[in-house]
Computed example of a mutant assay.
Amino acid sequence: MSTLLVPARYYARLSEILPHHGVDPQRLLDTAGISITTLLQPDGRLPLSDVERLVAALIATDAPSEIPFALGKLLSVSAHSVVGFGMLSSPTLDDAMRFVARYFRLVMPSFRMRYSSTPNSGELLFTPAVAMSRACLEFHLEVIAMAALRDIEDLTGGARPPTRLNLSIPIPPHRRLYDTLSRVETRFAASGAPHARLELHADPRARPIRLADPNALKVAEQRCSALIHHVAEVRRLSEWIEMTIREMGEGVPTLGELSQMLNLSTRTLNRYLNREGTNYRKLAGAMQFELACERLTRSAQSITEIAYVLGFADPANFTRAFRARAGCSPKTYQQRMRLTDPDAPLPPPV
């Protein structure tokens, strides 16, 4: 079981829901071996093992299946502490989504968030970052999906764009509740890689945020940066960088660009990474390869397009770098993965 610590504040909100469904919150916590004091601390954190026991204890009470649905709907943007502050201070919905994706590890470190947008749409993708039981996974996917819908609702002042929600969970007994969501089409799938995906059918950049404040946004950036410094102090900066690059989903930044994003000097960033026994060149190469494999498997982009997206000025350099790691060309890799996954998009011409 992972030793990861997750914010306790979200689970504390169960006390507002459970009594309405005949469940005693204190008895549930006692069964899970969790102290109410920990839940009520502003910066309280729970080991993932405690969260697993909490979910298992909740299921054992025969409480209604819609508890995670209700919990997610209860979590407003302000529930995300300093990250929520930054979201509310962002100029547009697009900026807010990029902000939370960048700092999602401060929101729910057991999951990853990736965000991308076009002039006509936006996509939020949530996937697990650590191993957990199926029951715990499905509980959190539903909570995260509903919380994301609530975030968008809050940020747009109730003008949430038409959205398609894809959840990799079986159709729940409370399916009817999803039908009540305004402008949301929900699809369930019990098979495939675990995820929650929200597809926004409108330009997020054209959705201004009423409380946008550049000075407040700067303060939020500084506070999140301070938390990143703390991550570095406990020898996890390399993991943070890997997750940040994954969540960007659009190539690998240069050392200078990353330093600016993290509000660290390149010298300080290198010192932290050296202390962890690595360097940025090694990390960037590994992440470029990981993103290349993902795009070759799942994207409909050509190999040339993938090379440019990943920051290669010449597709031939991309082919050489990929072959050095994979032992085959990008084209061969793409063909092999197509054979193992018939549902993957057909590759376009190079």
Rank of each mutant, 00 (worst) to 15 (best):
T244Q: 05
L4W: 01
V77F: 04
A344L: 12
A147P: 05
K218V: 04
F188K: 11
T38A: 05
E52Y: 09
I306S: 04
V100R: 14
L137C: 14
S265G: 15
R338H: 13
D203T: 08
V219P: 00
E257Q: 13
D341K: 11
A131E: 15
I144Q: 03
R275F: 00
H174S: 04
R236A: 14
L291H: 11
L262G: 10
L18K: 13
R53P: 01
L273C: 07
F99M: 01
A101W: 02
D30V: 04
T304G: 15
Y115G: 10
R336D: 12
Q260W: 00
V6G: 03
P330W: 07
L46R: 14
D62N: 15
R223T: 14
A131D: 15
P173K: 07
F126L: 14
A8V: 08
L339Y: 02
D179V: 03
V130L: 02
M1A: 09
R114L: 07
E276C: 07
P214Y: 13
F139I: 06
S182E: 11
T127W: 10
A212S: 15
I241Y: 04
E257T: 07
E16Q: 14
G192K: 02
G33H: 13
P47A: 11
L137E: 15
P42M: 04
A202Y: 00
L54P: 03
G327K: 02
L346A: 13
V231M: 09
S89V: 01
I228K: 02
A147T: 04
T319I: 05
Q222E: 09
R235F: 09
A147H: 11
M243H: 06
G256C: 01
L4V: 13
P91I: 10
L39G: 06
Q26D: 14
A60Y: 01
C328P: 00
P208G: 08
A220L: 11
L264D: 00
D203Q: 10
R98H: 10
F111H: 12
F111I: 01
G86S: 07
A57H: 05
E250S: 11
H195Y: 12
M248K: 13
A159T: 09
L28G: 10
L141S: 05
T163V: 10
A148P: 00
T38Q: 08
K282Y: 09
P162W: 07
C293W: 03
L283E: 03
F111A: 05
R134S: 13
N263F: 07
L211T: 15
H20M: 03
F322I: 02
D314Y: 02
L227N: 02
A212M: 06
N274V: 03
N263W: 07
T304Y: 03
S78V: 12
V252R: 03
A307S: 15
G22N: 05
E66T: 02
W240A: 06
S2N: 14
Q41D: 08
N279K: 04
E276D: 02
H140L: 11
P161D: 02
T127E: 15
L29T: 07
R281L: 11
V184T: 06
P170K: 07
E233D: 09
H21C: 12
L4I: 14
F111S: 01
R13H: 13
A148H: 03
S191F: 08
I152C: 05
Y178N: 04
K218H: 14
L106S: 13
P214M: 14
L124Y: 08
R112N: 13
A196D: 00
A232H: 04
L269C: 09
I171L: 12
R235Q: 08
S259I: 00
L296N: 09
L262A: 08
